[in-house]
Design a protein around this nucleic acid. Structure first.
Lengths: 255, 255
DNA sequence: TTCTGTTTTTGAACACGTTCAACAAGTGCA
DNA sequence: TGCACTTGTTGAACGTGTTCAAAAACAGAA
C-alpha cells in the first residue's frame, strides 16, 4: 500500500509502474526516505541532491532517473502527510458528533502530524506557490491528493449533527479544504514555541466557521451562501476541468 | 522621488545611502530597469543575472554589489506597483462615495496596473511565499510597502458613506488588504484571456465583502465581528511587533 | 600634488540543480 | 544459449546563482 501510494505521488512520467515490486522500487523508496530524513535534519536548502544520492547509495544521475527534480521529492511528503493525518483523526471522527469538535480534531491532528516537517514547511509553501508547478495545490497533478483531503472534510460534515444549507452541502468540503489550506499557511509562518499560535488560531477560526455554517440556513444569509458557492466554483476553475465538487456522503472513489 | 523610493525598497544593507544622487544611483537604477524589462520580456526564470548585468553594462559581481540576490530585484517591483496603482485609482477615490464602487475601483486598477507584469507574477508569488524571505508580505522588511497598501484601504473606507461597526473600523484596512492579497493570488493563477476571470471574481467577492461590512453593525453579527478583529490581530503577530493597526483616517506618515 | 581611506567594479571560481552519453544489468524470445 | 530490447546506473559536464580577492576609481585632507 505504501509502495502503491508512493508510486502514485511520484514523478508521473518516470519509472516504477504497476509491475511487481523489485529493485527499482527499493531504490526509489530509499531515495525518498533519505531525502525526507535529510530535509527534516538539515532543511530543504541545506540538503543537496548529491548528499541525498550519496546517503541513499546511488549516483546523482540515478536520483534523477527516479525523480524529475529536487522539488518532486517533496511530493512524496504530500501523500504521506494525508495518510498519517487520516490515521490520527479517524478515531475522533468515529466518536464525535458535534461539528465543531470534529473539525477541531481534524485540524489539530493535521498540525500535529505535520509538526516533524515544520523545519522545511516554508519550502513546501514556496514550492507549492509556483502556479506552473505540478506541486501546486491547484494543479491537476495534485488532484488525487486534494481529493483525499476534501473527502475527509466531507466525512467531517456528514458524520456530524449540523444542519447545512442544501445549496452549500456539495461545496462545503471544498470550502473547508480552503480553510485547512489557510491554517496550514499560517502554521508555516508560525515560529512560536510548539506552534501554539496556530492552535489558538484554529480555536478562534473554527468557532467562526462553525457559526457561519450554522447560520447558512437562515434566509438572511441565503444570498451570501449562494455567492460563496459561486466563489468555490471560480476557484475550482483554476484547477482545470477535472475538479468537480465532492458529492456529500458518496462512497470514496477507488482512484 | 522615484530614486528615493527605489532606494528605500532596495537592499537594506547595501550601498546607495542618502547622499547625493551619483554614479552609484545611476548604476543601481540601470540594473533595476534592465531587470524589470527582461523579466517582462523573457520571464523571471528565462532571465539570467548575466544577461541583466550584460545589458545594464556592468559586471556580474557589480550587480551583486547593489542587489543581494536575483530575488531582491523583484522588490523594486513592489514599490513601483504601489505608486502606479495609487496614480490610477486616485481619481475614483476623489469622486466616488459608494463603498462598493470605491472598492471596485481600487481592485480593478490594481489588476490593470499589474497586468504588464503578469508574465512573471507566478515568480512574484513564489518569492513572496518564502516565510524566511524579506520579500514575504508578512515580513518586517515589507512593512513600508504594506503600510502604503493598508493606508490606501483606509482611504477607501474613510471616504465612503458606509456605516462601519466601531470595533471593526481600525482593523478594516488590514482585512481589506488581506482581501486584496487574495485577489492578487487568484490573478497570479489566472490564465484566462485578459485575466477576465479575476475581474469576475472581483465583482462577486466585492459584493460579499461590502455586504459583510454593512452587516457588521447588526447585533447578530457582533460576535463574528469581534472574532474577525481578533483574527487580524493573530495574523498581524506574524509580522512582528511593528505591525500596528492603521488608525482610520489618520494623516499619512511621512515614512 | 600626494597620500590614505572608501566606494565601485571586475570576472574567475565555486556550489548546486540538472542533463545525457555511455555502460551495465535484466528480461524475454527464438 | 545467444541476441535484441528494456531498464537501471554512472559521473563528467553544463548552466546559473552567487562569492570574493584584487584592481580601479573616487573623495577628502594635508
Amino acid at each position: 500500500m505504501t509502495d502503491e501510494q508512493t508510486g502514485q505521488t511520484g514523478a508521473g512520467v518516470g519509472p516504477g509502474g504497476p509491475a511487481k515490486p523489485k529493485k527499482a522500487d527499493l531504490t526509489r523508496r530509499t531515495i525518498v526516505e533519505t531525502a525526507l530524513r535529510l530535509f527534516r535534519e538539515h532543511g530543504y536548502e541545506g540538503t543537496t541532491m548529491r548528499a541525498i544520492a550519496s546517503e541513499a547509495g546511488v549516483s546523482i544521475g540515478n536520483a534523477y532517473y527516479y525523480f524529475e527534480s529536487k522539488e518532486h521529492l517533496i511530493q512524496a511528503y504530500y501523500g504521506r502527510s494525508n495518510a498519517e493525518h487520516l490515521v490520527a483523526c479517524v478515531d475522533a471522527l468515529e466518536t464525535e458528533r458535534d461539528l465543531k469538535q470534529r473539525l477541531l480534531a481534524v485540524l489539530y491532528t493535521k498540525i500535529e502530524t505535520a509538526q516533524p516537517y515544520h523545519r522545511f514547511a516554508g519550502q513546501l509553501f514556496k514550492t507549492a506557490a509556483d502556479p506552473a508547478s505540478p506541486l501546486s495545490p491547484f494543479s491537476s497533478e495534485s488532484m488525487p491528493t486534494r481529493r483525499e483531503a476534501t473527502e475527509l472534510m466531507a466525512l467531517v460534515v456528514e458524520g456530524s449533527d449540523a444542519r447545512v444549507s442544501p445549496e452549500l452541502a456539495d461545496e462545503l468540503p471544498n470550502l473547508l479544504w480552503l480553510y485547512l489550506m489557510g491554517i496550514i499557511l499560517f502554521w508555516i509562518h508560525d515560529d512560536s514555541a510548539g506552534c501554539a499560535r496556530t492552535f489558538k488560531l484554529i480555536d478562534r477560526t473554527a468557532d467562526i466557521v462553525v457559526n457561519l455554517i450554522n447560520l447558512s440556513s437562515l434566509t438572511l444569509m441565503r444570498p451570501l451562501v449562494r455567492r460563496a458557492v459561486q466563489l468555490t466554483g471560480e476557484l475550482r476553475a483554476l484547477a482545470g476541468p477535472g475538479a468537480e465538487p465532492v458529492p456529500g456522503g458518496q462512497e470514496r472513489s477507488s482512484e
